[in-house]
Structures are given as structure tokens and as C-alpha cells.
Write a protein that binds this DNA or RNA. Structure first.
Length: 418
RNA sequence: CUGGGUGUGGCGCAGUUGGUAGCGCGCGGCGUUCGGGACGCCGAGGUCGUCAGUUCAAGUCUGAUCACCCAGACCA
């Protein structure tokens, strides 16, 4: 993509109505645009990051047998009444709307009810189970207070998966398989080393513990106690001697940390399946309850988490796995040969399927460097008269110094490291 | 929802005791520049969040309202 054709621009000043680092940087760099408190539009660069994260999650869910589908945002009231989750006194962050004829509808804040209700048509026999289904879609929650940029919005992108098992032990297997998939997702996103599986309150869903995935960060809303050796943690909300014993954690090994919840998984037992009449017939012709689990990842929140975590005083620093492009290509000056060589390199990189933003604007070097840094593209490549016609300069976003290479060496280096 | 704060060209801000709006960035033109956000000259762009009121006169005072930010509570 040529920079001169991108419709977004970078901003020198931070927006006045944002304080959160993730929002400030993402807006300044032209990745997102605020529509209202808690609702952000994704501009081309931000959309690419979001898509890259989505793709990683999709691959890992598919790898454990997840089947992707897409439910509707509009939800009918009656199924939510069956589980007693329609009443605003019970679930207070609903967005609700009405049909012209007055019928009340819910705007999807989660999808247990509609998914279970829909599956009644397809799940009859023990032969139809076990099953994982998931979707990646927008969720709407009427939070009393949106805050922290992408970390807590009213409209956000979420991956929600649901598992359906015949027995508790089969469920436990599915649950752990999904947990492993979560670990792989966070590893691939570059936050595996600071993300902990964290025992938490099952909340509305279950008497058992749920598991949150918490990424250490000083801006996190949650307080957790981490056992770094065991790679486990416990949320402050259930931090009692009794629970520590249950989890096999020892107080002396725990460190208090702030963290951002980047995922959570819940054992649901048969709470929803029973309430919505989803049963199966076993080998003996007997009606049995379906044991469920649900598994959420805040996809758009992850964009914010990565922006928040991987940034320096110059701007964003994307991990290669999610960066909107791998290379920020810069020609310095408008010398005929430099432009010609840059054009050739640009075409070569594209031919190798390396995503590249070419800053072809008639701008001064400092401005191009500043934008390359602000946008956080992993590699910066410079061509100039000074370097001569067969030399290009490569600098990684996190490196202090640049190195000089031949164009072919550059391509080789990027393709092997990318 | 409770408490605190903020709304003035596209963005970031200033605006004295009420007297008809100004700066920086950005934008358009010309010229000089060209390895870390250059410089000069010229130019376009604002019913001061909205509504109502006080006043000869309101960006400035009063009331209401909307929006946004922060802290807390809330977040199944």
C-alpha cells in the first residue's frame, strides 16, 4: 500500500478526550476512530491488526475441532426468560430494542441462549456429540462506564466458543483442550510469557471456579495473585485460604499483580442446556443432559492490550504476528534513481507476499521516520541517494541501529524472520 | 449511578473587569530546502456543544440540557 493513497493521517497531538495509552496511540497513528464513548471504528491499519488476531484465534479454535458459525445480534426475549437472564435486575447491561409492533428484542451481549436453542434442532443422539462451535462477532454491553480505550467498550469484537459434551469427564477433556488452545493463542500473540491462567469466581454461570486468562499490566483492572513457577494465578475476588488449598497454591509463592482479562472460560454444567431443553438420547435410549462450557476471548480488547503493552515513547510496537504490515518502506528525496529503485523493491516485496507500506509522499525524512515509529511497523527500510543505488537500510522497530544490505539480502532476511 | 473536570476553525489550545474571537499544528498556493516531524511569504477555514434567559451588548453571567474525560461503584 502506498502511503500517498491511504486516507488516514497521523496526528501529532494526542486526542483531548483520551487518556488511555492504547487509545491515544491507536488514534494518533490512524488505526481507530472514536465514534462515542466505548465504541471505536477500525480504520484500514487497525482492521488489519484485528483481522490478524482473528485469524490466529480462528486457526487455534479450528485446530481443536471448533466449527465456526455466525449467530445474530438480534435476540428474542423468550429464550432469555427461560434462563432468567432477561430481567434488567438480573443482567443489567443489556441493550434492548423493539420491533415496530412493540415486541422487545435483546441486542446480543453473549450467545449461550440462542446457540443452545438453535442446537436443539441438530443434537438428538449421543452420536451428535461432543461438539464445539464458535463465532467471532460484535458484542454489545451497556456498561455504566466505558473506559480505557479499547479495553472496556460497549461494542466490541469477541470470539465466543461453546462446547457440548455427553458426560462431565468428556466435558473436562474439552475444557482442557480449549484451555490449551487459549495458551497457544496468547503465545502466538506474543503475550504468553505474561499471561496466566487464573482461577476466578464462576459467577452467574457455575458453582465451580472459572478460568480467566490474565495478562500482567499495570493498567489492568483486576488484581491477581500469581505463582510464576506453576504458571497459575488466583483472582483476588476468590482469594481465600480454602480456595488456595483447593487449587494447590501456597500463599508464600504468590505475588500480587495487576492484570487485564484477555479471556475466560467457564464450565456451565447443564445449566443452560437443561433450561432450554437441549438433551440427547444415550446408547440405552435414555434422555441425558448435555454438559456445556463456554470460552470467550475479547478480540478487540486484545488490540488494545497489545498497543498498551508493546509501545515506547515513539509509538506502537506491533509483534510481527499481528502487525498491519511487515515493512515500512521509505524513499528519501525525489532523486530519479532512488524513486526507481524504491518502486522496484516495493514491487518485489509485494511479489513475495510481504505486506509493505511505502511512504511515497513528498515529505521530509524526519516525518517519514516518525510515522514509521508511530505506526509500529516491525521493519523500516530506507533508500536514499546517500546509500547509493545497490544498498538499502534495514532497521527493526525495536533495534537501536540500522544495518546496510543489498536488496536481495533484505528480502531474504525479512522472509526468513517474518 | 455518586463525585470531580472539560466542550472555542479539521486536531491541540489561549481568550483579561461582558464590548462582535486569536495562537500552534494541519490544509491550499509560490519559493528556498531535503537522513529524525524545515523555513519565508500569501491564502481558505469558527452561528464559541445545544436551548432558553439576563443585558444596549454574552465565548465570558444565569438556568436547563447533551456529549466527553477521570475516580469510585458496577462489569452475570
Amino acid at each position: 500500500m502506498k502511503r500517498s493513497q491511504m486516507f488516514t493521517k497521523t496526528l501529532r497531538d494526542a486526542p483531548a478526550d483520551e487518556v488511555a495509552r492504547n487509545a491515544v496511540l491507536l488514534i494518533r497513528a490512524g488505526f481507530i476512530s472514536k465514534q462515542m464513548a466505548g465504541a471505536y471504528a477500525y480504520l484500514p491499519l487497525g482492521k488489519r491488526v484485528l483481522d490478524n488476531i482473528v485469524q490466529i484465534i480462528r486457526e487455534e479454535m479450528d485446530a481443536v475441532g471448533g466449527q465456526e458459525l455466525l449467530m445474530t445480534t438480534l435476540q428474542s426475549r423468550d429464550i432469555w426468560e427461560k434462563t432468567n437472564r432477561w430481567d434488567d435486575a438480573v443482567v443489567d447491561n443489556w441493550f434492548k430494542t423493539k420491533l415496530k409492533n412493540g415486541t422487545e428484542l435483546g441486542v446480543g451481549l453473549t450467545h449461550e441462549e440462542p446457540i443452545v436453542d438453535m442446537l436443539r434442532l441438530y443434537v438428538d443422539s449421543y452420536k451428535d456429540l461432543p461438539l464445539y462451535v464458535y463465532q467471532i462477532a460484535s458484542k454489545f454491553r451497556n456498561e455504566l462506564r466505558a473506559k480505557s480505550g479499547l479495553l472496556r467498550g460497549r461494542e466490541f469484537m469477541m470470539k465466543d466458543m461453546y462446547s457440548f459434551a455427553r458426560t462431565q469427564s468428556e466435558h473436562d477433556e474439552l475444557y482442557e483442550k480449549a484451555a490449551d488452545a487459549y495458551t497457544r493463542v496468547y503465545d502466538r500473540l506474543g503475550i504468553g510469557d505474561r499471561t496466566y491462567r487464573t482461577a476466578a469466581d464462576g459467577g452467574y454461570f457455575t458453582e465451580r471456579f472459572s478460568d480467566e486468562y490474565q495478562t500482567l499490566s499495570k493498567v489492568g483492572e483486576d488484581t491477581i495473585y500469581v505463582d510464576k513457577t506453576k504458571k497459575l494465578a488466583i483472582n483476588k475476588e476468590i482469594y481465600t485460604d480454602e480456595n488456595l488449598a483447593k487449587l494447590g497454591l501456597v500463599k508464600e509463592d504468590l505475588v500480587e499483580e495487576h492484570a487485564i482479562e484477555v479471556g475466560n472460560i467457564f464450565p456451565l454444567e447443564s445449566k443452560y442446556s437443561d433450561a432450554l431443553d437441549l438433551y440427547y438420547t444415550d446408547e440405552n435410549g435414555k434422555k441425558q443432559s448435555v454438559i456445556m462450557g463456554c470460552y470467550g476471548i475479547g478480540v478487540s480488547r486484545l488490540v488494545g492490550v497489545l498497543a498498551e503493552l508493546f509501545a515506547d515513547d515513539k509509538g506502537l510496537v506491533w509483534p510481527k504476528a499481528v502487525a498491519p504490515a511487515q515493512v515500512y518502506l521509505i524513499n528519501i528525496g525525489n532523486d530519479e534513481n532512488v524513486v526507481k529503485n524504491t518502486t522496484e523493491l516495493y514491487e518485489k516485496l509485494k511479489a513475495k507476499n510481504i505486506e509493505v507500506v511505502w511512504d511515497d509522499r513528498d515529505a521530509r525524512p524526519g516525518e517519514k521516520f516518525a510515522d514509521a515509529d508511530l505506526m509500529g511497523i516491525p521493519y523500516r527500510v530506507v533508500l536514499s541517494e546517500k546509500l547509493g543505488s545497490d544498498t538499502v537500510e534495514l532497521k527493526s522497530r525495536t533495534a537501536e541501529n540500522a544495518e546496510l544490505l543489498l536488496p536481495e539480502q533484505l528480502i531474504k532476511k525479512i522472509t526468513t524472520n517474518a
